[in-house]
């Protein structure tokens, strides 16, 4: 196969995800949603927010990877995804450089 044909094949073919995978992801999301609701009624003290964030992150990750097909997309798509997360990280990191080092007289 020539180089050009390989390129075209990569460019225009789509990975077809099986129905089984979609249902499995859907089931996982439902379980995680139930877990979110259950967690909301428990008191884990200072871990309340981190636990809620962790579950939400897992849910978002499977949606992005499977429902949005990023797992089967070209590397460029992954690079854009990672780049966006890096910039979100900058927003959080530098904002917290203020919040975590601020003088809180009430505390």
């Amino acid at each position: 196969m020539s180089k050009k044909k390989t390129y075209e094949a990569e460019d225009f073919s789509h990975h077809v995800t099986s129905m089984g995978t979609y249902f499995a992801i859907f089931a996982a999301l439902m379980v995680l949603t139930a877990l979110t609701v259950w967690v909301a009624f428990q008191d884990f003290g200072s871990l309340n927010v981190p636990i809620a964030f962790a579950i939400a992150t897992v849910k978002a990750t499977v949606v992005v990877l499977f429902f949005m097909h990023v797992i089967h997309s070209p590397k460029m798509t992954a690079a854009i995804l990672v780049g966006s997360i890096v910039f979100l990280g900058i927003l959080f990191l530098l904002t917290f450089s203020d919040y975590l080092s601020r003088f809180w007289p009430m505390a």
Partner: peptide
């Protein structure tokens, strides 16, 4: 350009440490 926004906040009440970083 994404790393320097809080130089607009130097006298707004951000921490001294954060102000120095920005």
């Amino acid at each position: 350009g994404f790393l320097i926004w809080a130089h607009h906040l130097f006298v707004a009440g951000i921490s001294v440490y954060s102000a120095m970083i920005f």
